[in-house]
Design a protein around this nucleic acid. Sequence first.
DNA 1: TAGATTGTTAATCGATTAACAATC
DNA 2: TAGATTGTTAATCGATTAACAATC
Lengths: 213, 213
Amino acid sequence: MEKDISQAVISRLPRYLRYLGDLKDQGIERISSQELSELMKVTASQIRQDLNNFGGFGQQGYGYNVDNLYSEIGKILGLDHSYNLIIIGAGNLGKALGNYMNFEKRGFILKGMFDANEALHGQKVRNAEIMPMDRLASFIRENNIDIAVLTIPKTGALEYVDVLVENGIKAIWNFAHVDLNVPQGIEVENVHLSDSLMKLSYNIARSAETKAE
Amino acid sequence: MEKDISQAVISRLPRYLRYLGDLKDQGIERISSQELSELMKVTASQIRQDLNNFGGFGQQGYGYNVDNLYSEIGKILGLDHSYNLIIIGAGNLGKALGNYMNFEKRGFILKGMFDANEALHGQKVRNAEIMPMDRLASFIRENNIDIAVLTIPKTGALEYVDVLVENGIKAIWNFAHVDLNVPQGIEVENVHLSDSLMKLSYNIARSAETKAE
DNA sequence: TAGATTGTTAATCGATTAACAATC
DNA sequence: TAGATTGTTAATCGATTAACAATC
């Protein structure tokens, strides 16, 4: 049994991937943990520790091969295969996410959208049709949907979680401002935008204080 | 000089606020750290430690007064006064955030939006007009803008950061997929949506592994 | 080979949890 | 007063950083 890797480490992987992608685009072939640490403003020690959770990707005296490390981290993050995705809630936020082509590039394929608002039914966001809520259950089963994105208000979110779980969804990307209760084995990633804004608000207030001292 | 409070603690405050708001709505007057801990699935010890960073809001033998604690946490988060805000980038995401009335309730007042796309100029998102980028600098100064929300691609984000800083913005809520370099004293809160999705992807892959074992 | 840099162990630091005296 | 629950100190746990032997 492998040891569990902490979510702190996982949270840093996408950032490594982003910097490595940039280096790749610049045609840079190799990088040492020291160089990367200066670029990313983290310690070289942390980079080496983080990577060694997954195996020895570097070479002593040389550093890391950018291409190789990029692809290894991609694999760790599960970006080497694709996921079918639906968006529940076709408001501005749902449409914004649906239109974001970069997700598709990473293997997150938008299969359909759902909304209670009849006026939206039949409209398309890229290749995905906006459908009524009563088609949700069968659509998930028939299209092997892996991920449901929740961009509806919290009452709606709570209403549909069970439907999602019962029909075999694997993960929920939750933008509703509520904590979801799901059975073990179903992954939930919360994006609580107002929490993030409040954090910013706190830091502004405190930064002002510090100046005043 | 007060000791610095860790961002880990700050990150939990909005969630406390949310639960206390719900309790308030249910008409509940008092709650103990024990009861709240069961509701929120954290330890009672953590709740008491977190709150005591800011002062003794409770009372021995009684617990915490819900109304009072709610308002105290709101104050800590700086929600007792208002911020002027602009959104740079009037695409789907910018519009979604602009239309989100709950931010206004919390004191984040949308004053204007900016976009390079001429077709959008003059359109309104609620009371805020979409303006061309060349009006950005003067608008910030004339309207005492505190927060800029960046919902534009990364090249644009990097292009306009200096303008924001030079004209006295206090904080940036950054949705662009890039790390911003700002002088000390300017707060940045990043919302890297694709990072969040990759984290979900990792957890799905790993959850599948665990099942297979 | 000599120099560079990793992989990994050990030391430190910080955050979380437990325990309990203070006190309402 | 007795019981309940906080505020706070002490203990534990985990994450980060430092150090260095291994090795390319």
